[in-house]
Amino acid sequence: MKVLAAMSGGVDSAVAAARAVEAGHDVVGVHLALSRMPGTLRTGSRGCCTIEDSMDAQRAANIIGIPYYVWDFSERFKLDVVDDFIAEYSAGRTPNPCMRCNERIKFAALLEKALDLGFDAVCTGHYAAIVTDEDGNRELHRASAWAKDQSYVLGVLTAEQLAHAMFPLGATPSKAEVRAEAAARGLSVANKPDSHDICFIPDGDTRGWLAERVGTATGDIVDREGNRLGTHEGAHAYTVGQRKGLNVGYPSPDGRPRFVLEVRPKENTVVVGPREALDIAEIAGSRYTWAGMAPADPTTPFACEVQIRAHADPVPAVASVTGGELVIRPDVPLNGVAPGQTAVVYVGTRVLGQTTIDRTVSAVPV
């Protein structure tokens, strides 16, 4: 097959590209220039699209012996990921930019261009597995080592995208083994730190970054009954489950800490309350997709597991499509779930689908 290897400049994508070559594929490496500031250098282990990363990817491609190109996707990245991130926060939701990047950049824009150029598949260094069922349908599954499993952030992939996806690291037992393999291959990225956090906010100060772009506006912090407890400088700076930096002038009657329960951007109001009020009995979203074949009748409730963060434990649940929404009811309440987050649904190790959470139902009503 003719394979386009997406090379971030990290060790995982480099080893994935090398394995694709060893498997006999005709491989071309490509680095996506996503930053609108191409001179930016990596700070610590943050980020994944700096000029330094591009050079690391080129060095790896040279050693592997494959052609290498840099494609400028910065404008698409700004529109589909960065601007979406700002809009979601401004609407009081908690977005996951890595999900959007995988959905709209790596497996939409990149795959579309790859297919137009005659490639058969896009190869990445994600830790996930693709399994073909007895009818020839491709399914997305967890990686063999759950500690490094990245199937959650790939839950947005559709059946068509899975048909052209390749994850050579899916069966690798550990990241240490990948690093050892990279070192044996002479790849200089063997000991390069993993990227983390949000790549376009290199200093990790999400609140400050948003304030520069959205601005600040004084608003009220209230309890669940609407009583004013304090003020804030912008509702966009708060997320559900947050405890620190609430600026509440006096303690709760029972002395227990308060947490952000809800963000109301239209009113510029932040609602706070006790930890137990964060327990969620139901989540639902209308923007849902299936990773491969959909259930035969998704309107009939089915048993599954739901995961709401990349590193969260899956929770047993019952799901169904009702009234145009994928509605998920966990067997035990989920804690601190916010609209805008992504709920990924599993059946065993298989990723069945996902939805962006539009609404939640508290297990502790007012």
Score class of each variant (00 low, 15 high):
Gly92Ser: 09
Pro95Gln: 03
Asn96Gly: 04
Cys98Ser: 04
Met99Ala: 06
Arg100Gly: 04
Glu103Trp: 11
Ile105Phe: 09
Lys106Trp: 07
Lys106Cys: 08
Lys106Asn: 08
Ala114Ile: 00
Leu115Ile: 13
Gly118Leu: 04
Val122Gln: 00
Cys123Val: 01
Thr124Ser: 10
His126Phe: 12
His126Met: 07
Tyr127Met: 09
Ile130Lys: 03
Thr132Asp: 05
Thr132Leu: 04
Asp133Gly: 03
Glu134Arg: 06
Asp135Val: 01
Asp135Arg: 09
Asn137Ala: 09
His141Lys: 06
His141Asp: 00
Arg142Ala: 08
Arg142Gly: 05
Ser144Leu: 05
Ser144Cys: 08
Ser144Arg: 07
Ala145Pro: 04
Trp146Cys: 03
Ser151Trp: 00
Tyr152Gly: 10
Gly155Trp: 07
Val156Trp: 01
Val156Phe: 00
Thr158Ser: 13
Thr158Asn: 03
Thr158Arg: 05
Ala159Leu: 06
Gln161Arg: 13
Ala163Val: 10
His164Glu: 05
Met166Leu: 15
Phe167Glu: 10
Pro168Phe: 07
Ala171His: 10
Ala171Leu: 14
Thr172Ser: 14
Ser174Ala: 13
Lys175Met: 04
Arg179Leu: 13
Glu181Ser: 12
Glu181Pro: 02
Ala182Asn: 02
Ala182Pro: 03
Ala183Met: 06
Arg185Glu: 12
Val189Thr: 15
Ala190Cys: 08
Ala190Trp: 14
Asn191Pro: 02
Asp194Thr: 08
Asp194Cys: 02
His196Gly: 08
His196Val: 12
Ile198Ala: 12
Cys199Asn: 15
Arg207Thr: 05
Gly208Asn: 01
Ala211Val: 11
Val214Leu: 12
